[in-house]
């Protein structure tokens, strides 16, 4: 049986920033408490002239990737892929781009950011990650699908490490869009996990086991959001604890086990 490890992690959450390298950092007083307000210097020590122009999912994904990969020295970028799950894709940018079309001056910058994949490719370009990328869009389980996919790619030796990102966020002004239901648009967050098939001398070496099991659905009458499971995973690793989560979301059920290796 194959063994897989989480080596680093990070999250942008309404409470603040969580990461293996920096621990928990709350938002500053002059920040609104939303991950949308993350500043470049809070996550990335080097200049990034385009940071201010990134759309919401790009900014969240880049910032979380920077926190995740910060100080992790065992990375082989040529063999590192990205598995990204996103709830909305780039709906805010779609609406902004359409406004530019209607004004008679279509914006090429907005247009290229209308692809749901743009958040993943921004990360790939900035961190020179050249492995296989897959972008999953969906309401219920894009993050778990991305996590499952990353493990599959590692198992098949298609990558030596996989950066898993779960991104949800839309511009504040677009929350009134007819396309965005309250249920979907409630939270803004991004979670990042770096997975490997091998142990590392520089990572946390949390063993991860993911299984899907339809019988879980019947057992779990109380359904939770996908984000809540990701938060539990991050929280357990922050506290250096082992955890077993039994999840049940929509039509997907199963379990995730994290075990800290000594």
């Amino acid at each position: 049986m194959d063994t897989f490890y989480i080596q680093t992690f990070a999250a942008l959450h309404k409470l603040g920033m969580f990461s293996f390298s920096k621990g928990f950092v709350p938002w500053n007083n002059d920040q609104s408490g939303s991950p949308l307000d993350v500043l470049r210097w809070q996550v990335y020590a080097q200049p990034h002239v385009g940071f201010g122009k990134l759309n919401v999912p790009e900014r969240l994904a880049f910032s979380t990737a920077a926190l995740t990969l910060n100080e992790y020295v065992d990375l082989d970028p040529d063999k590192t892929g990205i598995s990204l799950g996103t709830v909305f894709g780039s709906i805010s940018t779609d609406l902004r781009y359409m406004e530019s079309v209607e004004s008679g001056f279509p914006s090429p910058a907005y247009f290229t950011a209308t692809l749901p994949s743009s958040a993943a490719t921004e990360v790939a370009i900035m961190f020179k990650l050249k492995g296989p990328d897959r972008i999953f869009v969906g309401n219920e389980t894009p993050g778990l699908t991305a996590l499952e996919n990353a493990l599959t790619l590692l198992k098949l030796n298609k990558a030596s490490s996989m950066l898993v990102l779960l991104v949800n966020g839309i511009d504040r002004k677009e929350k009134s869009s007819p396309f965005i239901t309250l249920e979907k648009g409630m939270s803004t967050y991004c979670y990042g996990l770096l997975l490997t098939k091998k142990r590392s001398n520089h990572g946390i070496n949390y063993r991860i086991e993911l299984s899907t099991d339809d019988t879980t659905l019947a057992k779990n009458s109380q359904q939770r959001t996908e984000e809540s499971y990701f938060f539990d995973l991050i929280n357990a690793m922050m506290k250096k604890r082992n955890i077993k989560l039994t999840y049940s979301i929509g039509t997907l059920g199963g379990s995730i086990v994290l075990t800290k290796e000594r």
Binding site: V137, G138, T251
Partner: peptide
């Protein structure tokens, strides 16, 4: 315009209920 809702629409039109629906957008 949301891709996951489009995927469900296609399954409804095709009258299929697959075990799992995924949307990949590369």
């Amino acid at each position: 315009p949301l891709l996951d809702e489009q995927a469900r629409l296609v399954c409804d039109v095709l009258a299929i209920e697959p075990k799992r629906i995924m949307v990949v957008s590369n």
